[in-house]
């Protein structure tokens, strides 16, 4: 969040009817956080620059369009609504789409990252995996199913087990870019990026080589920030299973 400089005017806005003041440059998401309002989010992490790609933090600001709170700056006099039937329906729809080709076993993998996507589905009441696009589970990795309508889906995207410490399941990736920003902006290893177009878009290492053959230095930042288990631990158990899906790292289990 922007730090305060003397003489700067605070911005006043209201969120769900509650007034809040923030510094110029603060986002709606940050303002909401000050009020203790946790907006659902998959692509954002306070340590990263927001990119607004998952759209789950959509809010109403009195404009015809919904806006993503993580990137939209707070404005003076703004009246923000963080929940409404319209917003809930949008979020449910988004999560349903993200899960439509999400492999059911990805959330079982050991991880220090979270299962925020699956968590969110439970919170929003999305009926998953029953409504998974292909309606099937457990296809052999590498196979591709072509459901009615000809839209490519299924489990065709690759698994990459070449790294000694991190397993990549491209099928579970929702392209939230958290790993890419973790690698490029936080650790500044600049190994990760995106490659491909359309449905073939995926995260990539160096010039799209397997992770284990790339210049990856195995710092684990990408795995730590991943919200879906697309990046998971190899050879470590991670938290016990009943803590997985908690949407946050660092669970003690009693």
């Amino acid at each position: 969040m922007a730090t305060r400089r003397s003489g700067e005017q605070m911005i006043s806005l209201s969120i769900d009817g509650r007034a809040v003041q923030v510094l110029p440059g603060a986002t709606i998401w940050e303002a909401a956080r000050l009020l203790g309002i946790g907006l659902p989010v998959l692509c954002h992490d306070p340590r990263l620059e927001p990119v607004g790609v998952c759209r789950l933090c959509l809010v109403e600001v009195g404009e015809p369009k919904l806006t993503a709170a993580c990137v939209r700056g707070a404005e003076d006099g703004m009246e923000v609504r963080t929940s409404s039937e319209r917003l809930e329906a949008c979020r449910r729809g988004l999560v349903e789409l993200l899960l439509s080709d999400y492999p059911v076993d990805a959330s079982d993998r050991p991880k220090t990252g979270s299962d925020a996507l699956v968590e969110l589905a439970a919170e929003l009441g999305v009926d998953w995996p029953a409504r998974r696009w292909s309606g099937e589970t457990g296809e052999a990795p590498g196979s591709r199913t072509e459901p009615a309508g000809g839209i490519p889906a299924g489990d065709g995207r690759a698994l990459d087990g070449t790294s000694k410490v991190i397993f990549v399941d491209h099928q579970a990736c929702i392209l939230c870019d958290r790993c890419i920003r973790g690698c490029d902006d936080l650790q500044v290893n600049e190994v990760m990026g995106r490659t491909g177009k359309g449905y073939q878009t995926s995260i990539a290492f160096d010039l799209d080589v397997p992770m284990g053959e790339s210049t990856c230095v195995s710092c684990g930042e990408c795995e730590k920030v991943c919200p879906t288990g697309a990046l998971s631990l190899v050879g470590w158990e991670g938290p016990p299973n009943d803590a997985a899906g908690s949407g946050d790292v660092g669970w003690e289990v009693l």
């Binding site: 340590r47 220090t112 230095v217 684990g220 930042e221 470590w236 790292v249």
Partner: peptide, 22 residues
Amino acid sequence: IRYADGRESPVNHERLCVKGRF
């Protein structure tokens, strides 16, 4: 130890390297 994770501190702001994490 089952696993490790970086935590917030003025030193590393949750970041770790391969030795610390694994």
